[in-house]
């Protein structure tokens, strides 16, 4: 069989060829060209440029937030977060799939994609607080508080924790010491001990190891951290908030991931900036646009733009100079 790319005489090419007469290049006049030399020169140039940029600008490395750091910098936030985990009102507790079935999750065109994904990484938000307390073999009052919590009915527990979370919200600065008296059961003791565990520096280990010496999965620790306000406050201070073109940037004045601008862009404008389903909608839109980019050569109208806007006459100006268009030649 003939090599499929070999140029055949125009007469044999049939209808398809009339629409697109562009030939393989192998039949055009040529001139010497050293591809290997071009690549080696490019490699040297890029290497030098990289070394230069790295030497001048370095790279950012803001240390990760530790649980102890969080507890020191924002103890009230840790207590409030722990109360919300126990009350089942934190972001993770009310998230839905893949962590729990507390919410329907987001939808695209009514299709509950998030729910369909299933609860495959089960996370019990109350356990984010209770498990470390249990493992930490805390002091007697904490153990007693744990026992009280465990023996209470679910409604009672929720009632205590919700009341305490609300009271914290009303206290000046969320300060646990300034909370009005109320019926909070063992919750104040539990959250206070939780703060101590966090301060001791052992919390991330307890959340990540889940019985395995090697740990390595930060899911629960990161969910807990992002249930608090401290992570987001720290990010906002670095201009990394979701409505500040958040995740495409990085700390400091570094370029980050500018190639994600289009994805991040949608979050900044309505209807997405105000939608409950923004994540799913933006993802769906980006998938459609991505398919559009991939199959752009097949989309009438868009694929004709480069023919109509004569940037190509600039790119190939040498060629067009030497091959002026003949009168009457189709454009």
């Amino acid at each position: 069989m003939a090599i499929p790319t070999r140029t055949r005489p125009v007469a044999q090419q049939g209808r398809r060829a009339k629409e697109d007469r562009t030939r393989d290049s192998h039949s055009f006049a040529t001139r010497p060209y050293d591809l290997v030399k071009e690549f080696v020169a490019a490699l040297i140039a890029v290497s030098l440029l990289t070394v230069g940029l790295a030497a001048i600008f370095s790279s950012p490395d803001e240390p990760a937030i530790t649980m102890a750091g969080w507890a020191e910098a924002a103890p009230n936030d840790v207590v409030a977060t722990a109360a919300a985990e126990l009350a089942g009102t934190s972001t993770s507790a009310s998230y839905g799939a893949p962590y729990n079935s507390a919410a329907e999750g987001q939808k695209v065109l009514r299709a509950p994609l998030q729910k369909w994904g299933g609860v495959r990484i089960p996370v019990d938000s109350a356990a984010l607080v209770l498990a470390p307390l249990t493992q930490a073999r805390a002091d007697a009052p904490t153990m007693a508080a744990l026992a009280t919590w465990r023996s209470a009915a679910a409604d009672t527990r929720i009632g205590w924790a919700t009341a305490y979370a609300d009271a914290l919200g009303k206290a000046p600065d969320g300060n646990p010491a300034a909370v009005a008296a109320g019926s909070y059961g063992p919750v104040p003791v539990l959250t206070r001990s939780f703060l101590d565990v966090a301060l001791s520096g052992g919390l991330e280990g307890q959340l990540t190891s889940s019985g395995n010496f090697y740990g390595g999965d930060q899911t629960r620790a990161l969910l807990l951290l992002s249930d608090g306000a401290y992570l987001e406050d720290s990010a906002r201070a670095q201009h990394l908030g979701g409505d500040q073109w958040g995740m495409m940037n990085e700390t400091g004045d570094y370029p980050g991931q500018p190639w994600m601008w289009l994805y991040t862009f949608w979050y900044q404008v309505p209807p997405f900036s105000t939608s409950e389903n923004a994540d799913a909608q933006v993802w769906a839109l980006m998938m459609v646009l991505t398919l559009g980019l991939m199959f752009l050569p097949l989309i009438p109208g868009i694929r004709d733009i480069p023919r109509l806007v004569p940037v190509h006459r600039l790119i190939w100006r040498d060629y067009y100079r030497d091959h002026p268009r003949r009168p009457g030649q189709a454009h």
């Binding site: 240390p63 990760a64 999750g105 998030q114 729910k115 994904g117 899911t219 990394l240 995740m247």
Partner: peptide, 30 residues
């Protein structure tokens, strides 16, 4: 580092919203 923490915390919502966050878990650095 901090960038990983923040970017993963943000990105999980996107990837979870289309139901694939359990297979591609951005909160699992391993």
């Amino acid at each position: 580092n901090f960038d990983s923490q923040w970017i993963s915390a943000e990105a999980k919502d996107g990837i979870n919203s289309i139901g694939v966050g359990a297979w591609f878990n951005v909160l699992n650095p391993g």
